[in-house]
């Protein structure tokens, strides 16, 4: 295809581009993720008539449009593909075990944050499962989706999805909460109204002052893109952000081992939760 040839990236270009991405997002692209940058940026290079990543780097650095292009580039490389009810064991544990326990202890208001929420499937999944458990009538829930990528946050706000977002979702849930219009599935107004979205960088502490204290953080399949320093910084921020008790859910392949000793780990059978306990 003349518009979508994959442009190969050289080692020095890769190092410079990774450095730029790291400085602006905290996301690390190690050398084994070279193909990911090639795949995600080649179309953009073709659109700009560039046939090498060096041309593109110079465009980012020396063109007056470089700054806005940098934002666009960060958006392109940070898209995190996800789908509804992904790794739902953790959401079920929160909805069916942790929240009822906390409600029994007298808690009436909960704040849940989906960090790096991409196009919103995760926070909407949380809202759907809270609704399925009938919890919205019993307590107050503030569900917040955050992502660095402005474009995906805007998509999340629209709440419109294609079939690829429904891998393994039971049709009863899909039919109950989504209205089909051609190729597009629009999430119900009720669920949409339960979730707020915010554009922000997990590395920056200013984000956390906007969010306030929270009870649950979902940050799944995100830390894998950060280097150790960035992981430590994000996890420290999460620790400060959480109430006591507060719960952190990571992706199934992610771990806090050698990153933080502040949390207590609990393996509940269908997954792991990291707990911030009282002193």
């Amino acid at each position: 295809m003349i518009n979508s040839n994959t442009v190969k990236i050289k080692d020095d270009e890769f190092a410079e581009l990774s450095d730029l991405i790291y400085k602006h997002s905290g996301i690390t692209f190690t050398i084994n993720k070279k193909y990911l940058l090639e795949n995600r940026l080649s179309r953009r290079l073709n659109e700009l008539n560039f046939n090498s990543f060096k041309d593109y780097l110079y465009f980012l650095k020396y063109d007056f449009k470089g700054k806005s292009e940098l934002n666009m580039m960060i958006n392109l490389v940070t898209i995190n593909e996800t789908y509804f009810l992904r790794e739902k064991g953790q959401i079920e544990y929160m909805v069916n075990v942790l929240i009822p326990q906390m409600m029994k202890a007298g808690k009436k208001s909960f704040k849940i944050i989906s960090a790096a929420c991409s196009t919103g499937e995760e926070p909407y999944s949380v809202a759907i499962m809270l609704n399925e458990a009938g919890l919205f009538s019993k307590a107050r829930f503030d569900i917040l989706g955050v992502d660095i990528n402005y474009n995906v946050v805007e998509t999340a706000k629209k709440g419109q999805y294609r079939t690829v977002s429904f891998r393994g979702v039971p049709s009863s849930i899909q039919n109950k909460y989504f209205k089909k219009d051609g190729f597009v599935y629009e999430i119900s107004r009720e669920i949409k109204s339960r979730v707020r979205f915010l554009q922000g960088n997990l590395m920056e502490s200013s984000l956390y002052s906007k969010v306030g204290k929270v009870d649950f953080i979902f940050c799944r399949n995100v830390l894998i893109y950060f280097d150790v320093d960035a992981k430590k910084r994000v996890i420290d921020n999460f620790y400060r952000l959480l109430n006591t008790p507060g719960y952190l859910f990571l992706g199934h392949s992610e771990t806090l081992s050698k990153i933080s000793t502040s949390f207590k780990m609990n393996n509940f059978g269908r997954g792991i939760v990291y707990i911030k306990e009282g002193l």
Partner: peptide, 20 residues
Amino acid sequence: VQEGVMQLLEITNLINFVQI
């Protein structure tokens, strides 16, 4: 190599020492 092991190799500065 799984993520947990990758993290350990990164912390110990060995990620570029071995081919993965």
